[in-house]
Design a protein around this nucleic acid. Structure first.
Length: 430
DNA sequence: TCATTCATAAACATAT
DNA sequence: AATATGTTTATGAATG
């Protein structure tokens, strides 16, 4: 028996390596995924009290960070009603810098397939795309591939299948139109992908970024702060603030996740854990788990799970799991503001499938497979739910703040007790 | 030199 | 049956 023929058009191709562009070597400019996610210690850079008092009992930070948390968890709603479809060609690219697309119209895009796929998925309204639409998006954005040998589709599929960053999600049952599954970005690895994208020479690519969210916070929204204020905040940050704010962030994120979870009828149904178990990918982070190794992990032998960029996975996974990296990543990218006005208007931005996929999403919304698209800002039901969630968050935040105040009070008491004790012993010695 | 990442090709299985 | 999709293996280039 000979080799299987007629499988895909992929087969009747020349080796694309023949078309490699000089000066644009495969890895030279390519968006290689980072081995480590950039240091994800929460900088608590938002805490801007400007004071010098480093005592925990100085509760300015609490007030500030509580406001901040509200901005993070609730206030972001007002930023963008639609899904954050950022404009890859947006005005964020430095003047005089060509966009990758334009560069790649005749030459190979400076992104790895992983990043291309990631961008495609992130551009989709529902953050999930079938393979076909990933093809389409890439073709749409990178005309290079229209003339490139079709082997690139094989590479896309290969990446989807092999790469740990991507997850397969079932389409709705009983829905026969549309082959295959939907592909999503594993939230756990979003920071990695973002980090990789950030390393691209084209800063406009950053405009694609959706602020990474914790696994269950599906509605990723951009966070808008000016870089100037951010730097200022970073400048004033203090260690005590970091820890406190970190605690608050973690607390908040867990609360938020719970609240958001309540909104969702069912979690995403991840099809099958191929590279490793993704069963936890859409689960919550354990609340307030400050530990990097939370036990669940994680036998990541790069050889065991044969996939790309397996190294460094441990740390980044832990970081992202703890939600802390979300904050840091957000900080890294929150300057980028969505251009949602273009969504869907020209057919390329806010990519819509030409086939049934969107219909699929709609049905899934009501649906039977548990796949829930991101709530859109004008979704009344969603906003109502969010309001409820917000109230919950508010209440829990108050409780949390109360607890922290309580702790601070204890600390104050202890301090004063210590002082008294010292004074007494001093007296006693005299 | 070695390990790693990535691209590419290919074989094969399964679903539509 | 044809095609699309998904998985797996192999190989080689580039890089640190």
């Amino acid at each position: 028996m000979g080799p299987v023929t007629g499988m895909t058009p992929d087969k009747n191709i020349e080796s694309p390596t023949a078309e490699k562009v000089p000066g644009l070597s495969q890895t030279e400019n390519m968006g290689s995924l980072p081995e480590e996610v950039g240091a994800a210690r929460p900088k608590a850079s938002m805490v801007d009290n400007g004071a010098t008092d480093e005592e925990l009992t100085n509760l300015n930070w609490l007030h500030e960070s509580t406001n901040l948390l509200n901005n993070f968890s609730l206030g972001s709603e007002g930023v963008s009603a639609g899904s954050p479809l950022y404009d890859i060609e947006g005005d964020l690219s430095p003047s005089g810098c060509q966009t990758p697309e334009k560069l790649s119209a005749s030459s190979k895009p400076p992104y790895s397939f992983s990043l291309l796929i990631y961008m495609a998925i992130e551009h989709s309204p529902n953050k999930c795309l079938p393979v076909k639409d990933i093809y389409s998006w890439i073709l749409d954005r990178f005309p290079y591939f229209s003339t490139a040998p079709t082997g690139w589709k094989n590479s896309v599929r290969h990446n989807l299948s092999l790469n740990k960053y991507f997850q397969k999600v079932e389409r709705s049952h009983g829905k026969v139109n549309g082959k295959g599954s939907l592909w999503c970005v594993d939230p756990e690895y979003k920071p990695s992908l973002i980090q990789a994208l950030k390393k691209q020479p084209f800063s406009s690519a950053l405009a694609l970024y959706t602020p990474p969210t914790s696994p269950t916070s599906v509605s990723s929204r951009p966070y808008v702060l000016t870089s100037a204020s951010r730097r200022k905040q970073i400048h004033y940050v203090k260690d005590s603030d970091i820890d406190a704010a970190t605690a608050m962030m973690l607390l908040n994120s867990s609360i938020k996740e719970e609240a958001l979870d309540r909104q969702k009828p069912q979690p995403l149904k991840v099809v099958l854990p191929k590279k490793r178990s993704y069963a936890s990918a859409f689960k919550h982070c354990p609340p307030l788990s400050l530990q990097e190794n939370d036990g669940e992990v994680i036998n990541i032998d790069p050889k065991e799970d044969h996939n790309y960029s397996a190294s460094g996975g441990d740390s980044q996974r832990c970081e992202s799991r703890s939600s802390v990296s979300s904050l840091s990543s957000v900080e890294e990218v929150y300057e980028f503001i969505p251009k949602n006005s273009r969504t869907g208007s020209d057919g390329s931005e806010g990519f819509h499938s030409e086939d049934d996929t969107d219909i699929d999403y709609e049905e899934d919304t009501l649906g039977d497979n548990g796949y829930v698209p991101q709530p859109s800002g004008n979704d009344l039901h969603g906003s109502k739910l969010r309001k409820e969630a917000s109230q919950d968050i508010d209440e829990e935040l108050k409780e949390a703040a109360g607890s922290l105040l309580h702790l601070a009070g204890i600390r104050t008491c202890l301090d004063s007790l210590l002082k008294t004790a010292k004074a007494q012993s001093h007296k006693h010695r005299k």
